[in-house]
Amino acid sequence: MGRRRSFADISYGLVIGGLAVLALFIIVAPVVIVLMTSFTEGRSLKFPPTGFSLQWYEALFDPSKSRQIHRAVSNSLEVAAYSTVFGVLLGSLAALGLSRSRSKLARAADSLFMSPLVLPGLTFGLAALMYFTLIGLRPSIHLIIAGHMIVTVPFILRTTTASLSQLDPALLDSSLSLGASWLYTLRRVTLPLIAPGIFAGAFLAFMASIDNVPVSLFLSTARTDMLPIRMWGMMESTLDPRIAAVSGVLIAAAFLLMLIMEWTVGLTRRMRD
């Protein structure tokens, strides 16, 4: 950094800094509005909120008033957890299998695995329901998990592939040539290096599952009520402020989770090393 900063450098700082601030503003503004609204004293979802109170959080945690929401939350968490676990298993294996291959077939498989991201959820939900009925399966939580796994696995695949592409092939070859078995190399060399990538993908997939409306809509039953569908109903007919409180809880939970992860795994490590 020279003592005299050139015009170009100043303009660089201003433009880049300004745009980054704009980005932060666009990201944060809706979050702030929802959080503020969740503490409203009023009876409906309205901004600016009237007064401050914790009543909607109390109502949200009240086991009798919010029983249906709790049921929906537990269903959504269960579906998200299982679909993410299966997605991570199958998705990261597939990424390992395909990332080094340059064959046409591998590339075709890669686009196929990405296509659930592109097919509108509504279409997939309807088609899946028709197909499952045809082969004699009825809507159930297992089908929802399968459906969510399909629509969220692209995230895991993409982030894992991205970390794999930065893995030095020489590293693997040297491990293998030193006589280590393929499995040993995977466990001791590859996995630790790509774990953060898998982790980021798993996070994206988990959140996408929690927020999925259309697939759940068609594959759910009366007993597998899902959170976003319930929230949609609350928003449309009664403007219930509890839906803002749900987001408040989600953000707080994610913050805690982030702290714990930071402590154990080190989420940002993959960004730095």
């Binding site: 269960e78 319930r230 109903g233 007919s237």
Partner: peptide, 29 residues
């Protein structure tokens, strides 16, 4: 593992059961 996904608690012993669709929101409440 898939099959082990815990389903909701068994329905209390009622004589019968009926599943009805209803509009979300006020109707359902």
């Amino acid at each position: 593992a898939i099959g082990g996904v815990s389903l909701l608690p068994a329905i209390a012993h009622a004589k019968g059961i009926v599943t009805a669709a209803t509009y979300p929101g006020v109707w359902e409440d």
